[in-house]
Design a binder for these strands. Sequence first.
DNA 1: TTGCGTGCAAAGGTTTTGCATGGCA
DNA 2: TGCCATGCAAAACCTTTGCACGCAA
Lengths: 141, 141
Amino acid sequence: MRSKHYATKLRQLILEYLMQDASRTVTAKDIYEHLAAHDASISRTTIYRYLDKLVREGRLLKNSTDGGKTACYLYEHEPDCGHHLHLRCGQCGKVTHLDCQEAENFIQHVLQEHDFTLHCGSFILYGVCHACKMQQALSQG
Amino acid sequence: MRSKHYATKLRQLILEYLMQDASRTVTAKDIYEHLAAHDASISRTTIYRYLDKLVREGRLLKNSTDGGKTACYLYEHEPDCGHHLHLRCGQCGKVTHLDCQEAENFIQHVLQEHDFTLHCGSFILYGVCHACKMQQALSQG
DNA sequence: TTGCGTGCAAAGGTTTTGCATGGCA
DNA sequence: TGCCATGCAAAACCTTTGCACGCAA
């Protein structure tokens, strides 16, 4: 279902950056700064347009950081959009892929009992991970 | 833990509006327009500041509409922040409160097995409800 | 040559901030 | 009187759009 497209250097760079660490979500700004730091000048417009395209093709999950406002993206190595949930720690930014039975069951339950189809954008849940909780506890005495 | 505050007419109006229908999420714009329609002039600044306060106090869930960008809010009648999930239909805007055992189990599983504490902002999941799915199917022939 | 990709500049929209004033307790 | 609440205007941000040019196939 992928529309026709050309291989360009900029897109390759963006994609590499997105794929490089599937345990982080990325913002348009992150990409801009990353490319800038690597001497690749790029316009924000190009970034947004390419991200949009990837989202439409289902290769990227689009979501928002906890507060709202800024959109963030997560590369889906298995582009079966909507088959597993993710947990993202708001402090260290790490993303855990929930491929356990419980998550599976929950999604099925929502779909069957509540007759509700989850949107891809809701496949990232936010919170705080174990490591950050510990650190927080320590720093609070 | 509620900080000192004064009862003012504007805040009362905002709160009434938020409480009036716990099956919808509301944006700052909604509030602005609602009050304007009821001859209550208010500044957007005031709305944002009050919403922030309510979120900090845990009486409101802050989230983003599907795309991101605009924040939306949901009044929590039981301010035990983090005890049940909600499903929000992106088309009709209706919010279903998931107070079933499965949701409960899932949250517990995430907390215990993955050692991950969900953030209040993630207690709203987005998707499409039954009614809207049907309508969509019909309109597509 | 065709049609996608890109950049620039400008617009659009939401949210935040600084500062002065108004109002509750 | 002491804070908190409010409004205005401006700023800060993120994202989108229109248009012209560049470039892969």
